[in-house]
Amino acid sequence: MGTQARTTSRRVREARAQAQKRTQTRHRYAAIGGGAIIVVLLAAIAFVLVDAARGEQSAAPAPSSTAVPAGTTAGGAIVVGSGPVTVTVYLDYLCPFCGRFERANSAELERLVADGTVRLELHPLAFLDDKSRGTRYSTRTANAVATVADQAPRVVLTFSDALFAQQPGEGGPGLTDEQIASIAAGAGVPTDVAATFTARRFEHWVASSTDAAFQRDGVTGTPTVKVNGKLFDGDLYTAGPLTAAITAAKGSA
């Protein structure tokens, strides 16, 4: 074999060796990359399963019960007090603006209920369920408040206040059923009443009341507040303006 032929043969062998080396390298990187992808996928699956397990007991389907809480109106309101001025409040326990309204006005509203000025009509809605990662937090808390209104009405406002005091943020799973029951106990709700929250007895009522608020009452968001049926368009997030409107309504009654 001549020198040129040997040189050509050597170059062919070297090219093949380099090509094989590149192929092996690609396979090695592909295996590493594939392993990394598998690890990521397994981690994602594990996260979903853990998250689902966390919310499973909270995301139970609504029962077929059409029970209505005692002491509520045909329009879906929980009534507290019997004063001459009717204050109607539409709220969702996951709504951050409702939390701001509560912090500014709850003490005054409770005072005005206690002194016989206000008949408070509370509408607990559940339109933010899609903001609690499948646990239906708005529905669960509204059902809990309805349960207390039905069985322990004396402490329903205290319980409502307590829920807002520990309000979770939108986008998370919300509080668990056990945490809601614990808050209820701290607000004076009897243990046997809090134990019935998971029965979801008033979820159908909550859903119907929520639909009625938007379709019949013209509610477009929460909080929505009315004084003697007229929309209050003043400052909802500062103490004082709502009280002034209530006082004026009482004077003109």
Score class of each variant (00 low, 15 high):
G34R: 02
L109T: 08
P84G: 10
A60Y: 00
C98G: 10
F127Q: 09
S58Y: 00
T25S: 14
L128H: 01
Y90F: 15
L122M: 14
A17F: 09
E110A: 13
V113D: 15
A114M: 10
L94Y: 04
P124N: 11
G116F: 06
F101E: 14
L109P: 04
Q20N: 13
A59G: 12
V79W: 05
F127A: 05
L49R: 13
E56S: 08
Q57D: 15
A60N: 00
V68F: 04
E110F: 02
G99N: 11
A19Y: 06
T25Q: 11
L91R: 08
V113W: 09
V39P: 03
I78F: 06
Y90E: 13
V85Q: 08
G116K: 10
S58D: 14
A46S: 08
D51A: 07
T88H: 06
D92G: 03
V40R: 00
S132A: 03
P84L: 04
T72Y: 01
T72S: 02
A67G: 01
E110W: 03
P61W: 00
A62I: 00
V87N: 11
S65C: 01
G83C: 08
E110S: 14
A114E: 13
A104M: 05
A62T: 00
I37M: 13
R28L: 11
A17N: 13
P124R: 03
R54F: 03
L122W: 02
V79S: 12
T23H: 10
R26W: 12
A77C: 07
L128Y: 01
L109F: 07
T117D: 12
L109V: 04
V79L: 07
G34V: 01
R103H: 14
L128A: 00
V48W: 10
Q57T: 03
L91H: 12
G83K: 03
S132C: 01
I32G: 01
Q57P: 04
S82V: 12
G33K: 02
G34E: 00
D51K: 03
G71E: 02
A17Q: 10
R103P: 09
P124M: 02
A44N: 07
S64V: 00
I38W: 13
R111T: 12
D92T: 12
A30R: 13
G71H: 02
A107P: 03
L125R: 07
A77Q: 06
T117R: 11
L122D: 05
H123V: 06
Y93S: 11
P124C: 00
C98P: 04
S58T: 00
Y90C: 10
L112Q: 13
Y93L: 08
E108N: 15
A53S: 15
L94I: 15
P96K: 10
A77I: 09
A67H: 02
R26M: 13
